[in-house]
Design a protein around this nucleic acid. Sequence first.
DNA 1: CTGTTAGCGCTTTCAC
DNA 2: GTGAAAGCGCTAACAG
Lengths: 330, 330
Amino acid sequence: MNIVEFAKILNLSIGTVSRALNDRAEVSPKTRKMVLEKAEELGFVRNSNARRLVTGRNCMIRLECPHRTHILSDQYLVELARGVEEVAGDNGYDLLLHLGARRSDAVDVQDVDGLVIVAGPELTAGDLLHLTNGGRTPAVVIVGTAPPDFPAASYVCLDTLPGVREALTRLATLGHRRVGYIGSGPPGYGLRDAFPQLMADAGLHWDPDLAIEAGLTPDDGRRAARALLALPSPPTALFARTDVLASGAVQGVTEMGKTVPGDVSVIGHDNIEAAALVNPPLTTVAINLPDVAALAVESLLAVITTGAAPTVRTLGTHLIVRRSCGPAPV
Amino acid sequence: MNIVEFAKILNLSIGTVSRALNDRAEVSPKTRKMVLEKAEELGFVRNSNARRLVTGRNCMIRLECPHRTHILSDQYLVELARGVEEVAGDNGYDLLLHLGARRSDAVDVQDVDGLVIVAGPELTAGDLLHLTNGGRTPAVVIVGTAPPDFPAASYVCLDTLPGVREALTRLATLGHRRVGYIGSGPPGYGLRDAFPQLMADAGLHWDPDLAIEAGLTPDDGRRAARALLALPSPPTALFARTDVLASGAVQGVTEMGKTVPGDVSVIGHDNIEAAALVNPPLTTVAINLPDVAALAVESLLAVITTGAAPTVRTLGTHLIVRRSCGPAPV
DNA sequence: CTGTTAGCGCTTTCAC
DNA sequence: GTGAAAGCGCTAACAG
């Protein structure tokens, strides 16, 4: 059924029906009510392609995750997408997905009102120029590092430092003085470099001997923890760059005949699913993905609907306290 | 620029231009070539809303993952979505995402040509009726169990048995006779119930004493492995329902002073990311998600484009051989 | 092979 | 407050 038939049934003109359906002021309340009820009753839904054609609005944003340039692992991508879908949906926008699995980058930017781009460090200003149709399509970029030099887009910057700072402050509060750092090899978004300063921020002394670039596996974490605890003056707390390393570190500590958190406190990073499942559940650093999604979509919709200037906003990580941290042993 | 302006520049009628762009036969090769080149050069792209309106085709399929009814964890969802996007894209279809994060189920089924539905055991025929607009919108359902009673949809059934059968056959070939089973508590899609038969299929004797319903964490797997190996007549191989359990089992075996795969072989299930990272890398059972995606989209497109009858197809798991399995000790 | 024209279903002036 | 009519940009049927 189209609007003509529907209007005929109601004995109204299509103009009035359209106005009622669009919630315009010029239509009388009782007419509007009647139209809405009848539409519901008869199951009349307007053809959205026709609407889009005539209005020029698509009510559609595309979630863009260029291949191999995610900051977010697949697990988090879904969580982010959920958030994006939720707040986009609340504003009447549908979500088109572009994971970049296909070679063809012939993105019909005219079909969407805006872009949410999940960017890794490899994403360049040139890529953004291409993706945004030369900056003409509103876009918000979710980025872990400093934004690329492309001012036509909005940005949501993910800042890992606050959570780590919070973690170290907590350790300091718990009386820890010597904190070991277990890294994951390739410098992860500068965290390794920032660590000494973060320690200082927490009022802790930074001892380079207490830092190990371990690797990716739990076993790497296990070995790193053992090495650290075997030191003449061992740390009483361990910060691991990833939860995977942290879970291994817990094993390592246990193998050395010590307990977590009784003798040694362990803090992880990322809040992977397993972090809550291991024994003891890991205190870890996380970012609130629904918040990220909401901020991104709000930034985007602001420029789509009000034509506002692009914005740059930052969202920090925070500490999730579970049971792998305790007071420093006396 | 619209097609009128574009045609004017080319000194052609819009009809000819449209035919050239649609790759119709009635247009002369040189005209077509010219149109295509000029379109590229001038950056002319047809308005797809107008096209959709007039053709009635949306070139859009929606990936539907109703909240909390996934068979696939988030990690795999992305992998599946990649595959769906790839083959859908190859056929000119875009991908709309509906994760079911929003309450509003007012799905405008008229906007898409078909649905790919990822269904968990909770998804009922009634849900499908609703999702498919009363069976009017073509749909393919990816399902781990037996298909719900809703014949209007196509199905891709995920069958976990072949991979497990393959795993047990391999163990039998390697000379193992006693195989322990480490389950994950709630019966996972009937695998627990099917296990004795699968053992028989592989020519192995099934001993109920060698089955433990462990849990979800690595530690559960660790304890289960220790319990199994402490038996008077212990197994020489362990099959774990999940890779998480399997990785814990490896720890447990090691703690008992035995080696993997020297003394005990371990096989996991699911092929999570970590399965390849642990030490030794886990032999495990997996399903080829790109294949699942391809099969699903092909099934769907068949009914969309040719109006064929819905189909039911099954795709089995298979064994991924890594290093956690070896010959049974003599 | 190409040009002309009638819609697709809707929104939005412009009259009334 | 409502009705009539002019498009939105395109495809496809119909002439030529």
